[in-house]
Structures are given as C-alpha cells and as structure tokens.
Amino acid sequence: MYSAEQLKVYSLLADVKDPEVPVLSILDLGIVRNVEISDQGGKQNVHVYITPTYSGCPAMDAIAIGIRMALTGRGFGSIQVTHQLQPAWTTDWMTEEGKRKLKEYGIAPPQRKSTEKLALFEEENIACPRCESTDTQLVSRYGPTSCKSLYKCNSCLEPFEHFKCH
C-alpha cells in the first residue's frame, strides 16, 4: 500500500511530537493526512499534508517546522508541507496507541466517537486517568490549549486535563 519511500517518511514523522502534548507524535494524533512522493531527476520530493486540530492551533507552525527538520538531510529533494482543512480533523483519528500514551501522561483521552453528539447541557462521564474513578467533575470547558478541558477527580482529589472529543 505504501511505497518504501513513503514508509521511510512515515517512520521519520513518528519522531515529530506535538509541542503541546509532547508524548504524542503527529501520527498518534492523526493529523498527517497524506504523504506524496514525486520523482524529480532521481531526487524524491516529499509533500506532507497535515490538518489542524483546531482552526487557530498555534502548534501548527511549530509542527510544520518539526516535519521539515525531521526530513531534512535524509536524502530527499524538496520538502513541502501543506495545511489541509477538509475533511476536518476529529479525535476519532487519534490512534489507540496515542490514547494509551495520553492516559499514561495523565490526560484523560477522548472516549466517545465524535459523531455521537451530546445535547446542549449533557456531559460526558470522564474517568480519572490516575485512579480510574468516574466520580469526576468538569471544572472548566477550556484548558491551557484548545484541545483540552479541565476536570477534578472526587475520589483521589487530583485535578486533571481531558482531551476533548472533537
């Protein structure tokens, strides 16, 4: 399905981290939509398509630079990174591996499918990433980054972040 060159690019991209959640690679996050390779006089030009998690995500520029850094000096020709909006990124594209890493890091991963819409005032039942208790409460819809909200665990009393289903 993938060519050898594409696989090489993907293996290098596995080392590019989300600067705001540094345990996750951009592949774990599911923001790499496509890798195109074109041959130009024996040099392999690389074109990586990434999709922002949120419209104004300030990490996108850092991620684009990270991709260039990871691919530079690896024998490729030109390296191009394009931001692609459609289809819109969803937490459904986050890998199971990514969700596991998030939880280990202390962030409760998204748990529903993004297509299951909640009613206006309905809340999700989020399990504490530390003690697994579901006796938790939403402290704030918005956290330090657009993709997270703030919770508190009523069992172990620890505050934690939740990666919002989106």
């Binding site: 949120y54 419209s55 104004g56």
Partner: peptide, 20 residues
Amino acid sequence: LEQDIAMTNTALDLLGRART
C-alpha cells in the same frame, strides 16, 4: 483564570478561521 482562558481559546478559533 478559567474564563479568561475560555475567552482567549475562542478568540484563537476565530482568528484561525479568519486566517484561512
């Protein structure tokens, strides 16, 4: 603090939309 962050997070979404 949480609502300060809520406002600025929303502002960021709006600016991102405007940029495109």
